[in-house]
């Protein structure tokens, strides 16, 4: 088996496994309102701190709520934060990157220096900064995490676009007298997509993690919702007597992150021109 074919095969295996797990988690998150064995918020005083059992797979918490149901229902928050935030950074970051690449000069300088400024701040601090000034909720967390990852996509898009702008087919389009929008949308963007998709696929992992971290600090969905970061934060005070309260959302988060990462890695191996031979253009 040749090296290229092996890469292709391994890429698709990572893609398949990661894709299946992510799809399964998404499916569970979607059907959890009907599928979850118990209500995620209902108390049961007699069953507080019950260890994992056949009736409660992940045990119960300090109010007797079923941790398994809470983890299932909570999956949607992590998914929404990961994919929602990434959508925001793509929607804002890619046009900015294209703009910076096309309009060298003042526009580029302004955009890229703003990007440098954002990148120089640690992501968690930047997120805290955005959230600290207003009362937190899920949507604000998504937007905050989205903003944190805009600079990375802007930089990536710009560097890809800069390379493409030198290509003959772009020069040809310019020679034909096509306008900036037309060149960016019809010539550059279709060819810049693969690295952008790969990068965003991998960044979803970081977005989920950052979202959960912010939520752990109290700047995310509010109780009694069962966002995983919040569940871990709440479980801390009971860690020595009911470790399952923190382990269940923690390991779920871990599984989701590994799956998304595998999927992103698979995408990279599939789409990266350097790995699969010279592709398009």
């Amino acid at each position: 088996m040749s090296g290229a074919a092996l890469g292709q095969w391994r890429g698709s295996r990572a893609l398949r496994i990661g894709g299946c797990v992510v799809a399964a988690i998404i499916a569970l998150a979607v059907i959890s309102p009907w599928f979850a064995p118990y209500s995620a918020v209902a108390f049961d005083v007699r069953l507080r701190f019950a260890p994992p059992s056949a009736a409660h797979f992940f045990g119960t918490d300090e109010f007797g709520r079923d941790v398994f149901s809470r983890v299932l229902v909570g999956a949607r928050y992590s998914l929404a934060m990961g994919f929602g935030a990434m959508a925001i950074s793509v929607i804002a970051g890619v046009p900015l990157g294209l703009l910076a690449a096309f309009h060298r000069g003042f526009a580029e300088a302004a955009i890229m220096r703003a990007v440098d400024l954002l990148i120089s701040l640690p992501p968690i601090l930047l997120g805290l900064l955005i959230l600290a000034v207003t009362p937190p909720n899920l949507w604000k967390t998504i937007v905050a995490v989205g903003i944190v990852y805009i600079p990375i996509l802007t930089r990536l898009t710009r560097s890809v676009a800069l390379g493409l702008l030198e290509e003959d087919f772009v020069q040809a389009a310019r020679a034909r007298g096509e306008g900036a929008v037309s060149i960016l949308a019809r010539e550059i963007l279709p060819n810049a997509w693969p690295p952008i998709i790969v990068e965003s696929g991998l960044r979803v992992t970081f977005a989920i993690l950052l979202g959960s971290s912010l939520s752990f600090l109290g700047l995310g969905p509010q109780p009694p919702s069962s966002e995983w970061g919040l569940m871990i934060a709440e479980s801390r005070q009971f860690i020595d007597r009911a470790p399952w309260m923190g382990l269940a959302p923690g390991l779920s988060l871990c599984a989701l992150l590994i799956a998304v990462n595998l999927f992103g890695e698979g995408l990279r191996e599939r789409l990266d021109p350097r790995l699969s031979g010279r592709g398009r253009a």
Binding site: V41, A42, F43, F63, P135, P136, G218, Q222, P223, P224
Partner: peptide, 18 residues
């Protein structure tokens, strides 16, 4: 969180804000 849950049946639809 306790009040959020217990006051529901009495007509109080509470959202908790930390």
């Amino acid at each position: 969180v306790t009040l959020q849950q217990l006051a529901g049946p009495g007509g109080f639809d509470i959202s908790v804000q930390r």
